[in-house]
Design a protein around this nucleic acid. Structure first.
Length: 503
RNA sequence: GUCCCCGUCGUCUAGCCUGGCCUAGGACAUCGCCCUUUCACGGCGGUAACACGGGUUCAAAUCCCGUCGGGGACGCCA
């Protein structure tokens, strides 16, 4: 991984970062954090930094790294600089020892606690081990020199009641007593940095001046302020984002909530990245002027930290859902449909193609013809498979011939209509106006209503009642296929026992 | 358990800082009507919320206190 220069590319705008830890796929909450950081950087002419917080060797996976990059690439927003925390360990350690030398840290020779097993319940109010905190420096040095393993802990001020404070751009002034902050670890007994240390050391080194992240870090921030100050650094500005929660009110989790919280699920089900971004922006932020559907440019132009809310936001998905559409938040689906309708035909057609090609062989030119017929009828790109399938198959899948019977009509009427259509269509040019004229007058001749004329034909060529407008459909389908399918419909009607002879 | 944060329609939200224009606005969803060759789009309309209790004030969704409720953080994980 390349490590670009630390100096900002363009100038003196804010430097922000998105720092995921690769322990799972990119989920929607992380994506929103990325987006808000990106928006803030772009809005203010700043620099967006991607930093992989991968110091936990045990849990980091290559698959997770890939998933994160997949998700971010799909969003298509990009970033200016990229770092990998695991390559910067020496820097973190250096900061830890600076803090130690300044007297704000001490060695703790207590053997490491077992693990996360008994993490479950109420953790007492453990603050520190007096024996270790008060160990004379000489003895500490001697034991370290003798090779005894130790963790390095932050020496949280305890002599007199002190308060740690910072101003959060979203939550306002935050204050916490040092009596409520334990002596957290800086270095583990294998000398590897902990998250808090590594994060602060990198933020300082990379000159991050605005940290925009989830509210689950709000209380961690007091520790971070302590670290920055002990290391002699100016703490950056903080802005914490309200948490994205599941319909059950709990924090989004891959384990509990499954694939709906993964960014790539949205991609695979046919969301447009711009619609997805739009949706996420409206979760915990508002432009305050009732706008909902917004382009990337509009978002950049109107984004500000002042518009961010404080209350948790529900992502209203349904995990066991009957259809793909039902599993997502209905507003996300609606926004996607809005963006789809706003897309230029050629663009939409191009984006539809990969989905169609999962099941059918289709030429781009054909797709382009079909696109206008479904543009306002699909909500997810993937819907193209169910909305336009009959354009792409040579033979229709079997359907119930009873569907051919029009409103207030019978099988006989269906038969007469289709016979008439077959005859009359033969000599008709397959263009909208010609078809319109011919079929309407055919209806008149038969003495049936236009709707009664059209429905049997629609079902015959589409295989179902709900479909795009008939004339356009026929035009795109072409004369040969249309007439062939009408013939097949006629045959299936004859097999219907109830058919009282087409006259 | 300790500490922190939050609480406006089912959901996302506007309004709250700088009390009165709020008989609380918009959107999604939902219901109904219209448009219409089906579906969809579009148009019109309906149902639906200031968690509760006390204050302060001529006046509170807006300020203060309390209660309840929800969430988060408390690891040699990130």
């Amino acid at each position: 991984m390349t490590t670009p220069k630390v100096e900002a590319a363009g100038g003196r705008g804010p430097r922000v970062r998105f720092a995921p830890s690769p322990t799972g796929f990119l989920h929607v909450g992380s994506a929103r954090t990325f987006i808000f950081n990106w928006l803030y950087a772009r809005r203010n002419g700043g620099t967006m930094i991607l930093r992989l917080d991968d110091t936990d060797v045990e849990r980091n996976t290559e698959a997770s790294v890939n998933s994160i990059f997949d998700g971010l690439r799909w969003l298509g927003l990009g970033w200016d600089e990229e770092f990998k925390q695991s390559e910067r360990i020496a820097l973190h350690q250096k900061m830890a020892w600076t803090i130690f030398e300044r007297g704000f840290a001490y060695r703790d020779f207590t053997p490491a606690h077992s693990g996360d097993a008994e993490k479950s319940g109420a953790q007492g109010n453990w603050l520190y081990n007096p024996g270790m905190r008060d160990l004379p420096l000489a003895e500490s040095d001697r034991r370290a020199a003798a090779g005894e393993p130790f963790a390095l802990r932050f020496r949280v001020p305890r002599d007199l009641e002190q308060q740690v404070r910072f101003v959060d751009a979203v939550y306002g002034e935050q204050v916490k007593s040092t009596a409520d902050i334990e002596d957290f670890a800086l270095l583990r007994s294998d000398s590897m940095p902990t998250y808090h240390l590594a994060s602060c050391a990198d933020d300082a080194d990379l000159h991050i001046d605005h940290i925009i992240r989830g509210q689950d870090h709000l209380t961690n921030t007091f520790k971070h302020v302590l670290i920055f100050e002990a290391a002699g650094c100016q703490p950056p500005a903080f802005a914490h984002l309200p948490l994205l929660v599941a319909p059950d009110g709990t924090k989004l989790s891959k384990r509990r909530h499954g694939a709906v919280v993964s960014v790539t699920t949205y991609r695979d089900m046919g969301f447009l990245p711009e619609a997805f971004i739009n949706f996420l922006c409206l979760l915990g932020w508002s432009p305050k002027d009732n706008r909902e559907k917004m382009s990337r440019e509009e978002l950049v132009a109107s984004f500000s930290l002042e518009g961010i809310n404080r209350a948790n936001t529900v992502v209203n998905f349904k995990e066991p859902a009957a259809t793909a559409e039902e599993m997502f938040d209905s507003k996300a689906v609606w926004l996607n449909a809005e963006h789809i309708r706003a897309l230029p035909l050629a663009d939409l057609s191009e984006r539809l193609l990969p989905f169609v090609r999962e099941k059918f062989e289709v030429e781009p030119s054909k797709m382009l013809q079909v696109t206008p017929l479904i543009q306002e009828r699909i909500k997810l790109l993937r819907d193209v498979l169910t909305a336009a399938d009959f354009f792409f198959v040579s033979d229709l899948p079997p359907y119930d011939p009873a569907e051919l019977i029009p409103q207030k009509g019978d099988a006989g009427m269906a038969f007469r209509v289709l016979q008439k259509a077959e005859a009359v269509l033969q000599g008709t040019e397959f263009k909208h106006d010609a078809l319109d004229q011919v079929l309407r007058s055919a209806a008149q001749e038969l003495g049936v209503k236009a709707g009664q004329m059209f429905q049997p034909i629609r079902v015959a060529v589409c295989g179902r009642k709900n479909a795009p407008p008939l004339f356009e459909t026929l035009e795109v389908l072409g004369k040969d296929k249309a007439i062939k399918r009408i013939g097949q419909a006629l045959a299936s009607l004859q097999n219907l026992s109830s058919v009282g002879q087409g006259r």
